[in-house]
């Protein structure tokens, strides 16, 4: 498709006044039409990177371009051709849903009707509330409206900074469904998120931590790199369980993971060995299962 664009980031560094590097020599290549996830905890540098691409911040070093437009020189072209959704809800709370959409359509020199097909799926859900002030919408609705406003001018690149943070699980799922449909329309999308489970919904992801890219690849590639045997363990006393597993001879890492503890091992061990070890430590209600690693396990492994 000709309305798609790639994103190229080469050795970009950025630090703020406190001299702590928010981004440290970050390089990424995002191909046209890709749904790319930037996964990392709070403070990893996700927002800084997205703001640099949105031309809101200048990188200290390195070059970045969208569709060949340089973020320094061609910022005006970029601004007219991308859709950007900041991490914080940034629409006019005292304007209604309709008015917000109309406003953003007009300032981008287009009409709501012109690209309506692009936002139709999303806007249909908002339509019953179109007279409501944006400030009175639920968190999920606000994000859907913000996405509509970012899409209304048919951008070639969509930059979404933590669009699902603070949104309920159902709305999160709906939101990702929409991103999937946008991908079908060929819009290159860069989306950042602190939720590891959302990574599997992307074509490719970059794991970012403390301003450095830890790994880039498709979710499966990243998971495949995880080589340790992995077990999900739970007992009646989870707190003591973590401490006891840490002193277990074959333990590689132990992390709490939902209701379970994810235990990775240095080598394959019979589950019975672990069970007898835990029984010797007087644990009750044992539950040990072999599990497949997830992105989160891969991320934890990379973070060590």
């Amino acid at each position: 498709m000709n309305n798609t664009a790639n994103i190229s980031i080469k050795e970009v560094s950025k630090s703020y006044q406190d001299n702590i590097a928010a981004l440290d020599q970050v390089s990424l290549e995002i191909t046209a039409g890709e749904l790319f996830g930037l996964i990392g905890p709070d403070g990893a540098g996700k927002t800084s990177l997205i703001r640099i691409l949105a031309t809101l911040l200048l990188p200290d070093e390195g070059v970045a371009s969208l569709n060949g437009w340089d973020v320094r020189k061609d910022y005006r072209t970029i601004r007219s051709n991308i859709g950007y959704m900041p991490g914080r809800f940034s629409l006019y709370q005292d304007l209604s849903v309709e008015e917000n959409l109309h406003f953003f359509a007009t300032i981008f020199g287009t009409k709501v009707e012109e690209n309506y097909d692009l936002i139709k799926d999303i806007y249909d859900q908002l339509a019953p509330f179109k007279k409501r002030r944006a400030g009175n919408l639920s968190g999920g609705m606000k994000q859907k409206l913000a996405l509509c406003c970012a899409l209304i001018h048919k951008p070639v690149v969509l930059l979404l900074d933590e669009p699902t943070t603070g949104v309920d699980p159902v709305s999160r799922k709906e939101f990702w469904d929409m991103l999937g449909r946008l991908k079908a329309k060929g819009i290159t999308t860069l989306v950042s998120t602190p939720y590891m489970d959302e990574a599997s919904l992307c074509d490719r992801v970059a794991l970012i931590q403390k301003g450095r890219i830890l790994d880039v690849g498709s979710p499966n590639e990243i998971i495949d790199k995880y080589k340790h045997p992995l077990l999900a363990v739970r007992t009646d006393d989870m707190y003591r369980l973590i401490n006891d597993l840490r002193t277990f001879d074959f333990t590689h890492t132990v992390f709490p993971f939902g209701e379970y503890v994810h235990l990775s091992l240095i080598q394959t061990v019979w589950p019975e060995v672990i069970a007898s070890y835990l029984l010797s430590k007087e644990h009750t209600g044992l539950d040990i299962q072999a599990v497949k690693p997830t992105i989160e396990d891969a991320f934890m492994e990379l973070m060590i």
Binding site: T55, L56, R76, R79, P86, S90, Q93, I107, F108, G109
Partner: peptide, 13 residues
């Protein structure tokens, strides 16, 4: 303060 300036800046305005 409300962050709307961020969106206005990333627009052809």
């Amino acid at each position: 303060e409300l962050g709307t300036m961020e969106v206005l800046l990333v627009s052809p305005l």
